[in-house]
């Protein structure tokens, strides 16, 4: 009789967590060193420690920059990395197709629509103008998601109905967005910038609203890791194993859509992260969601951190939208997956 299987799994989980957290820490400090004001690794680290000790009060310019500009940005990158990747992993499990991403329920198109509509109509919310775009994006995403939900439930609530409803809603909102972009011209320049996804304007006011919901919703998903394993058997076998498939799927779709909406609202559309990260994690650690999901969280945070660092350094001083970088990395990876494994998923 060998080592206990559960104990082995716990061991692997601890291992992956330690490795993932240490690389994340290094990347985190590295990202604090980057920017027009030059700083070394240890300089950034000491600035961070000093400013945190003083609770954010400082007059040292390095510390100010680390605390007010780079720290919130890094935290936000981690939050969004976790959120989008978890959402992707869950969507892939419940739709049982590894080639889908968290935008499948139309939330990204909805968010883009919300932003363009708000900009086109020139809406600004008095007193909190900085939240206008995120709020518009969030409401747009939620609207798209509710429409998808309604359509899917009305057509029987099957897995395929969600996918098709999401596609239809996505196309509808995209066409509205295109119309706005044509009509709006220069006014919507900013919307285009948002559409690509960027962390350039993240402040402490935003961080809380991104990081905390993203992390806590992801932890809630973690609590359902066993159910996500069961759902891999397919709807019918999952039901025969004792899982109430329909209500579980509904719950998961609601959680992932919320998760995606929060991420999209503040940082725009960051493509391919939710698609590619679960794959990397699956190759590394297998399909048991109790190990897979924590791995997905760590890989997601690491990958987006790297993408953000690349976006900031590759064409210095010009900063590229991080969404462009993730897509650039993601497209070849996706093409590879499609060629290698695509024919297994032909319906």
């Amino acid at each position: 009789m060998g080592e206990s299987i559960v104990r082995q799994k716990i061991l692997r989980l601890v291992m992956v967590t330690v490795i993932g957290l240490s690389t994340l820490f290094i990347l985190f400090i590295l990202s604090l060193t980057l920017g027009p004001v030059e700083m070394g690794f240890s300089e950034a680290l000491t600035s961070l420690i000093n400013v945190l000790k003083n609770g954010g009060r400082t007059s040292n310019i390095n510390e100010l920059i680390v605390y007010h500009i780079r720290l919130p940005r890094a935290i936000c990158v981690i939050g969004v990395g976790i959120g989008l990747s978890i959402a992707g992993a869950v969507m892939q499990a419940i739709i049982r197709n590894p080639l889908v991403d968290p935008y499948i329920t139309g939330v990204s198109s909805g968010a883009a629509f919300g932003v363009c509509l708000a900009m086109f109509a020139g809406i600004t919310i008095v007193k909190i103008p900085f939240y206008t775009i995120p709020l518009a994006a969030f409401l747009g995403a939620l609207l798209a998601f509710l429409l998808t939900m309604f359509l899917a439930e009305a057509s029987g609530g099957m897995t395929l109905s969600y996918v098709l409803a999401g596609v239809v809603v996505g196309i509808a909102f995209s066409s509205f967005t295109t119309i706005f972009l044509v009509l709006g011209g220069e006014k919507l320049h900013g919307a285009l910038f948002w559409l690509f996804g960027s962390f350039a304007y993240v402040s402490w006011k935003v961080v809380w609203i991104v990081f905390v919901p993203s992390l806590s919703l992801s932890i809630i998903v973690l609590l359902y890791a066993r159910e996500l394993n069961v759902i891999l058997l397919g709807d019918e076998q999952a039901m025969q194993s004792g899982l109430d498939v329909q209500s579980f799927k509904r719950l998961m779709i609601i959680i992932t859509s919320l998760l995606t909406s929060v991420c999209v609202a503040f940082t725009g559309i960051i493509g391919f992260l939710g698609l590619v990260v679960p794959h990397i994690a699956r190759i590394l650690m297998g399909s048991d969601h109790r190990i897979l999901l924590p791995t997905v969280m760590l890989v997601g945070a690491n990958v987006l951190m790297i993408a953000d660092i690349i976006a900031r350094t590759v064409l210095k001083p010009v900063e590229l939208p991080v969404g462009a970088i993730t897509s650039l990395i993601g497209v070849p990876f996706f093409a590879y997956l499609l060629i290698k494994r695509g024919r297994e998923y032909v319906v």
Binding site: P36, V37, I61, I65, I69, S198, E319
Partner: peptide, 9 residues
């Protein structure tokens, strides 16, 4: 896309 750090600097 003005750069905040440059402004602070």
């Amino acid at each position: 896309d003005p750069n905040l750090e440059k402004i602070v600097k």
